[in-house]
Amino acid sequence: MIDFEFRKQVMDYHMGSDIIKYCYQCSRCTDYCPVSKVTKDFYGTTGYDPRKNILNALLGYKEAIFNSDSLTIWGCTVCDTCDELCPQNIELTEIFTFLKNESIIKGEGPDFLYSQAKAIFDTAKAIPSQSAIERRRQQLDLPAVLSPNVDEIKTLLKNIGLDKKLKED
């Protein structure tokens, strides 16, 4: 089933506007994708496939993307190779960012991303400072890391609505 609203969102998302419609399914993206290489079988029927994602996004086949194995969206390791090699200059990873952001809203993203976002919301750092490492920094003659303004980051993120996407741990 074609989801026209989804289709419009995809078209609008790309920085070079609707350039995605020039995808001619050459499969160069998939041929050079390191994750496709280690997940696809010989006929390419299973495994991670950026070409298929672009096709389904372009046509508005929302269900084909979201109602399948989470690998469909989250297999991408964001190496940005496809962006470089696409002959039509499609920024695939921007479309994939949109798909991932939508999957997060549905609560279907990988757990580590929810914990990372929570750590940033709570401490302004993805990896909060620990006393053992602070001591090691002293041993190495390093200055202490300056503490970020956590309240400011919290306000910023709350206003954007990030707190509503977090999960309780």
Binding site: V78, T97, I104, G109, Q116, K125, P148, K165
Partner: peptide, 13 residues
Amino acid sequence: SCCPDPTGMKSFD
């Protein structure tokens, strides 16, 4: 603060 991660927070929001 955290940069934040181009493969983490960017994918999140």
